[in-house]
């Protein structure tokens, strides 16, 4: 991060040094990732045969399971950068953690909705309060709280410290959600593995996971770019108010 700041202040003296140029995310990454999802879904739907018990309902797996994985991954990013923020107090780490938290919460909400849509025909109920569903909802609520905390805290340092604490601790819920089906007796089935999944479903699931990973990377990068731009604008406005120094 340091070289970037130096480069900026030397090549562009007129600009405020605190306003080191925010990154620019190429829109092409959006097109590529959206295209990858279209290809992966098409491949998975066309190649997977009806499942023995569920019939074609099995196809909901290709959206529900990758959405859950991306939820976990996003919150892992939140954890890593929140911890690094608490350690090194770099502003950009806070902004990156917050960006990943918003993306993770979006995937978390999607996972819950898809689970309900799948549960109704497959289990006969939209929702049950078993350990997996409850812990997934708790994870969602923690990060909704995280985003609300950021929205309602004005002081940027206070915001960063509080959200780093909530983000790091909240992300500890991820392994609990993952292990819930193994530790406790739930209605939700334990995770499938290549051993329990017919090879004709495995490839489609992997492709969809990779495609959604690209979407997640674009989302976090773009959200981070916006956060950097907004913060840089704030810094410049503050500097202007202080008398242009």
């Amino acid at each position: 991060m340091k070289p970037e700041g130096q480069l900026n202040s030397s090549s562009d003296r007129l600009r405020d040094p605190s306003a080191a140029r925010p990154p620019r995310t190429s829109i092409w990454l959006a097109f590529v990732s959206i295209g990858a999802v279209i290809v992966a879904q098409t491949y998975a739907i066309l190649t997977s045969p009806a499942e023995g018990d569920m019939g074609h309902l099995q196809k909901i797996m290709y959206v529900h399971v990758p959405a859950a994985w991306m939820t976990f991954l996003s919150f892992f990013v939140v954890f890593a950068f929140s911890v690094r923020y608490l350690w090194q107090r770099r502003e950009n780490d806070d902004l990156l953690a917050a960006s990943a938290a918003e993306v993770g919460a979006t995937f978390n909400g999607l996972t819950l909705m898809l689970g309900m849509i799948w549960g109704r025909p497959a289990w006969g109920v939209w929702w049950v309060w078993d350990a997996r569903l409850t812990s997934t909802l708790v994870l969602f609520l923690i990060f909704v709280g995280y985003l609300a905390l950021r929205a309602f805290t004005d002081d940027t340092q206070q915001k960063a410290r509080w959200s780093a604490a909530v983000g790091a601790i909240g992300a500890l819920n991820v392994p609990i959600v993952y292990m819930s089906v193994k530790w406790w007796r739930t209605l939700h089935q334990p995770p499938s593995s290549p051993a329990t999944l017919d090879p004709r479903y495995t490839m489609g699931l992997r492709l969809n996971a990779i495609a959604l990973l690209l979407v997640m990377i674009y989302f976090i990068r773009k959200r981070y770019e916006i956060a950097r731009l907004e913060r840089a604008t704030e810094h410049m406005a503050e500097a202007a108010a202080m008398g242009g120094k």
């Binding site: 959006a30 196809k59 979006t106 999607l110 909705m113 849509i117 109704r120 989302f219 916006i226």
Partner: peptide, 25 residues
């Protein structure tokens, strides 16, 4: 009726992805 649930799942996925993308842009 299963087909309706499958369509709903894929529709919700696309609404969330494209909706969030639109918001970001």
């Amino acid at each position: 009726s299963n087909l309706n649930f499958i369509i709903a799942a894929y529709a919700v996925t696309w609404i969330v992805i494209l909706g969030y993308l639109w918001r970001l842009v």
